[in-house]
Design a binder for these strands. Structure first.
Lengths: 215, 215
DNA sequence: CCAGTAATTATGCAAGCGTATAATTTCTCC
DNA sequence: GGAGAAATTATACGCTTGCATAATTACTGG
């Protein structure tokens, strides 16, 4: 009948790698990088530990792959809503703030991952490069949005002031992202994004108080 | 002559505990909680590993003691400059922002410690309590300063708005603290505090642009 | 100055770690 | 349908870990 006596099923390299990476991210978020053991990851992915070595030449390599996977997912989630060239610069800035401060970007698991990876990022050159590239991309993108919105509003700013505005707005967004992830129940849905829009508005002098129109 | 044949020196319980805690914080900042091994800590404190068990009944207990030590040091450094009742509320708010965004509060090691402890904090009840108490104290204190400064300026705010302002200002400070600690060379001395003052000013509508007068 | 006691070191143990390699099992192709 | 190849499991090794306990060493009080 339905009792399948097979002891395992073969999967494509892609599917297996992804499953292992997802299991790794779960355990890293829960127990940190060192707490994410090869045996634990294998169990979470429903395979035996030997298989990990078949797809990744070391635990280090798996960790790096997982980190890159996570960073890509985060940037995709953040940038997609604001990447469309349609709409005014102000609308795109608003969409960016909103996306950065609502799920799935705001999420306890993301905070935990960010914290867990921090040590490794500071020590491993490859991870450091990934981190700085992502971070720089984020801030430059934000600075570009602010510049365009200010231009649009008829009050363009110099390079020095633009840099300061981007640093400040980036900081509010980061800080709110952190608070929302660390204390998920302390804020009503949408409250964080609302405070974010108001703060960015106050700092830049722009008016992005209203919710972004959904496309 | 000066060749002291003694194999070790006895120290007071206080001094030994503090030395062990400081060694623990160093290693936790460098390698995370799991990477701070009993043997590593003992070596860093120039003792043998057995001594740790003599002063702390387990590694867990040492970690908790180290966390509490660190949190106390952080709050002391942050609150001391603004705790003096002298000066206007605006001056105290300014001093608070400055203290939060200059060394030794802004420090790569603090960020590393914060990240390393995060996992443990979310799992251990005692550490969680310490964390929430510290965090709540920080935000309530900031909210009080903002309330007093607004009152002083003749434009008091309601409870709901006050809460939002405190959340937003707390977020900017946290975000800048994070950026300054993660990228210590990206900012000129005092630049972070300057951006912090400007941002808090923009968000609250207060005017704390000038540096705080030193007492 | 010398015994007693507490601090400190020295040694050992069981469990868990990452990694390596051999033994199986599943699938594909002719 | 059976042989070859690749995926997966099974087993083992050396090392590190936290913890326990015994053996030393340094200090103190009479």
């Amino acid at each position: 009948m339905s009792d399948d006596r097979r002891k395992f099923k073969r999967e494509s390299a892609e599917a297996r790698k992804e499953a292992l990476i997802l299991a790794t991210l779960e355990l890293v978020a829960e127990n940190g990088v060192r707490g994410a053991t090869v045996r634990g990851i294998a169990e979470r992915a429903d395979v035996t530990q030997g298989l990990i070595r078949h797809y990744f030449s070391s635990k280090e390599e798996l960790i790096i792959a997982a980190y890159e996977h996570h960073m890509t997912a985060m940037t995709d989630q953040t940038f997609a809503p604001a990447a469309g060239a349609d709409g005014t610069a102000l609308e795109r800035l608003t969409a960016f703030v909103n996306a950065s401060l609502t799920p799935p970007v705001v999420d306890p698991r993301s905070i935990a991952l960010w914290a867990s990876f921090l040590n490794k990022v500071q020590q491993d050159e490859q991870m450091k490069a990934t981190h700085e590239r992502t971070y720089g991309y984020f801030r430059d993108f934000l600075e570009g949005l602010i510049a365009a919105a200010l231009q649009e509003a008829g009050c363009p700013a110099g390079a020095s002031r633009l840099r300061q505005l981007a640093i400040a707005c980036n900081a509010v967004i980061d800080g709110l992202w952190l608070e929302g992830g660390a204390l998920p129940d302390a804020f009503a849905p949408g409250e964080l994004a609302g405070i974010g829009r108001q703060s960015v508005a106050a700092i830049t002098g722009l008016n992005l108080e209203q919710e972004a129109a959904t496309a």
